[in-house]
């Protein structure tokens, strides 16, 4: 078992129910830039791995989905956000002991549709890049 790096200051747990709680914990990080962008993290645990010793692609996509869904609602009165489309490129493997971060950018926001992109990184390694479309309601 590898040791986990400490959580960044101000990390707030957002995995409170259902699937997020089951695969989490997942945290929102405070130093969000202006413009509705979001920053999130999760510490890699044994349950997240595949048999090759990397973080399972399903967990990386789930984490991107959670981070982008939350960011889609930031600064709005909407309480629900539904993933319409998500495209994920698997750039490199996540490892045991990684503190994985998601950096989310809003590309365009219309009244009910939000276009987002997301880099999922561990330190200076990029694990996954994603872009997607969300419907907020």
């Amino acid at each position: 078992m590898s040791t986990q790096p400490p959580l960044p200051a101000g990390a707030e747990e957002i995995s409170t129910a259902g699937f997020n709680l089951y695969v989490g914990p997942i945290y929102r990080l405070p130093d969000v830039r202006a413009g509705g962008d979001g920053r999130f993290c999760f510490p890699v645990a044994e349950k997240h791995m595949n048999s090759a010793g990397s973080v399972h692609g399903g967990m990386l996509m789930s984490f991107a989905d959670v981070a982008m869904s939350q960011t889609a609602r930031f600064g709005t009165d909407f309480t629900a956000s539904h993933t319409v489309s998500l495209n994920c490129d698997f750039v490199g493997p996540g490892r045991a002991g990684d503190l994985v971060e998601a950096h989310v950018r809003v590309t365009r926001r219309t009244r009910t549709i939000v276009f987002l992109s997301c880099d999922v990184v561990a330190g200076d390694r990029t694990l996954l890049v994603a872009s997607g479309v969300w419907k907020i309601a």
């Binding site: 539904h82 495209n87 698997f90």
Partner: peptide
């Protein structure tokens, strides 16, 4: 190994 996945919901 997965290179890319695109999902439509």
């Amino acid at each position: 190994v997965t290179l890319n996945m695109q999902s439509h919901f």
